[in-house]
Amino acid sequence: MTQNCLFCRIARGELPAHVVHEDDEIMAFLDLHPIRPGHALVIPKAHHVWFEDVPAPLAARIMECSQMLARRMKRLYGVERVAMFFTGIHVPHAHAHVVPMHEVHDVTSQAYLAEGLTGFSAPPRLSEEEMARVARELARD
């Protein structure tokens, strides 16, 4: 854990949070600015800036907790789906968002909303050649 990291401070109990799950390696708590009520964050207690730096067994624990929360959210909110995604935009500590989706665009990127909230705009499609090039690059070690 680092001294000044917001999520490390929450994990140490130095800052308050509405905790919905905690064990020796992870913690889940409500997001202060939820997309929807129930929006939770699942963090490793150990400080990892990027999700790709989280050791695989620890990432699996985050996924297990997220799935458990998703089942609860479906039951509590009567939603068909729950989104789970990692971001690192505001706090440089790996964290998963678990969000009950009441509307189809609850977690949609702005890139898909050119027609507004009631429509859906697919971003421009890449050419087959570009898709093949990107696939080759991502498949390399």
Rank of each mutant, 00 (worst) to 15 (best):
I62M: 15
H97C: 12
A96C: 15
P34K: 09
Q67L: 04
L41I: 06
M1D: 09
R72S: 07
F51M: 15
H97Y: 11
I35C: 05
W50D: 15
A70H: 00
F7M: 12
V107K: 00
P34N: 04
Q3E: 15
H21Q: 05
H21R: 05
A96W: 09
L32E: 06
Q110Y: 13
R136Y: 00
V82M: 04
A114F: 09
L30N: 01
V20S: 01
A40C: 11
T108P: 02
R75H: 04
L6F: 15
Y77I: 00
A28N: 03
A28S: 11
L6N: 12
E64F: 06
R81W: 00
P92F: 13
P34Y: 06
A59P: 00
R36G: 02
A83R: 01
V54G: 08
M101K: 11
L126A: 13
L69Y: 01
P55G: 05
I43F: 05
P16A: 07
S66K: 04
C8R: 08
P37T: 04
Y77D: 03
V79T: 05
P44F: 06
C65K: 04
F120K: 08
G116L: 11
W50A: 12
E25V: 00
P123E: 15
P34S: 06
R12A: 15
A46M: 12
A83L: 05
A135W: 00
A139S: 12
L15P: 04
Q67N: 04
S121R: 12
E14K: 11
R125L: 14
T118Q: 11
V91H: 13
F120C: 07
E25D: 12
A83C: 07
P16E: 08
D23Y: 03
H102R: 15
D31T: 01
A96R: 06
R133I: 00
V107S: 06
H48L: 02
H90T: 10
H97F: 12
E103H: 15
E128Q: 11
I35E: 09
E25Y: 01
V98Q: 12
A96P: 08
L138E: 07
L138D: 02
M68E: 03
H21L: 09
A139H: 09
A60P: 01
V49E: 13
R61I: 01
H47P: 06
Q3I: 10
F85V: 05
V54I: 13
R12C: 08
R9S: 10
E52R: 10
H102M: 14
V79S: 06
V82T: 01
Y77E: 00
C5H: 14
I89G: 12
G88Y: 13
G13W: 08
H90C: 06
E64D: 12
S121F: 11
P37E: 11
G116S: 11
D106W: 04
